[in-house]
């Protein structure tokens, strides 16, 4: 088994942030990198917040993106939605577009993970002409396999025994085998900051949202990314989804689980590589100059992992 190394100690960085007003509620949005760089919308997972991109947003900025990281309604520093916890991921997709509209951003790269991945697929269908490339991680187009009845029952606090324990252990269980113990522990502890009601509502959305019918109509280059060790997803189904999208591709990550942006030390280079290889090369795509990116490093890392595991 290979263990990924995190050789770069966290460095202090400076970023911009916005408090926008969306649907009469304060929305918190991080804004990293050159304001004229290629915009990249980064969407977090169920119950979490933009803090999931804290280790990689600066890296993405360094390879040429303006990284927009919103906290979805009810998450992180964004106030709850006016009508209560959101169970329709389409609402989150509209929220993401509202954020970009308020920041004056037209075309963008969309990146999301888990419900954020499903939201990204939704955006690819909903606003494909605005999207340079869509990178949907750890998500398929069809409703996720969860117990809607159980999740609905657990919206009542008395029905949520050991919620913190289950989030902690459940998160650890879907972090990839290549991830060292220190990083696994950090990811799981950070995920325990959730609001259980919001998390469950997100997962109800995960279990309901179906954008499969729209896949053949998606016009933007779309990359569906799956971690080999992700117990939450059906990798074969996601591969089929990618085949259903005209400019779709599928990427399998050896040794990675459900949270590539928290697990991969070379996540920014990987994203840049996926964007550039997703049918965008040579086109008028508003991509950053390629000088800052070392997309080859991703291929090398994948080869190293595959060699070590074989």
């Amino acid at each position: 088994m290979t263990t990924l190394n995190y050789t770069n100690a966290p460095a202090a960085t400076t970023l911009r942030a916005h408090q926008l007003i969306i649907d009469d509620r304060i929305a918190f949005v991080e804004d990293w990198g050159d304001i004229d760089a290629t915009p990249l919308l980064a969407v977090h997972t169920a119950g979490q917040s933009g803090v999931q991109y804290r280790h990689v947003a600066a890296d993405l900025a360094a390879v040429g993106y303006r990284v927009i990281v919103p906290d979805l309604p009810g998450h992180g520093r964004t106030e709850p939605a006016k009508n209560g916890p959101v169970t329709d991921l389409g609402e989150y997709a509209r929220f993401g577009l509202d954020v970009l509209d308020q920041l004056g951003i037209d075309r963008f790269v969309a990146v999301g993970c888990s419900i954020g991945g499903k939201i990204t697929i939704d955006l690819a269908g909903r606003a494909g002409e605005r999207i340079i490339a869509a990178i949907a991680m750890a998500a398929g187009s069809r409703p996720g396999h969860v117990s809607l009845r159980g999740l609905t029952r657990e919206l009542v606090d008395i029905s949520t025994p050991s919620r913190g324990d289950r989030t902690y252990w459940g998160t650890r269980a879907v972090v990839g085998s290549a991830i060292d113990e220190e990083r696994r522990e950090l990811i799981a502890r950070m995920h325990c900051r959730e609001d259980p009601i919001v998390s469950n509502s997100d997962l109800i959305g995960w279990g309901r949202h179906d954008v499969s019918a729209g896949l053949p109509g998606v016009t933007c280059p779309t990359v569906l990314v799956a971690g080999e060790d992700d117990l939450w997803i059906d990798t074969a189904a996601i591969r089929r989804d990618a085949e259903s999208i005209p400019r779709g591709t599928f990427v399998l990550l050896p040794g990675i689980g459900h949270y590539p942006m928290e697990e991969m030390p070379d996540f920014a280079e990987a994203v840049d590589s996926w964007v550039r290889s997703a049918g965008t090369r040579g086109a008028d795509t508003d991509l950053p100059d390629s000088g800052g990116a070392d997309s080859g490093s991703v291929d090398r890392k994948t080869e190293e992992l595959e060699a070590a595991r074989s």
């Binding site: 029905s159 025994p161 050991s162 324990d165 289950r166 252990w169």
Partner: peptide, 12 residues
């Protein structure tokens, strides 16, 4: 099921 979930860490 309630006690099973409550005892998650104990089982581990």
């Amino acid at each position: 099921g309630y006690e099973y979930l409550r005892m998650t860490s104990a089982l581990i």
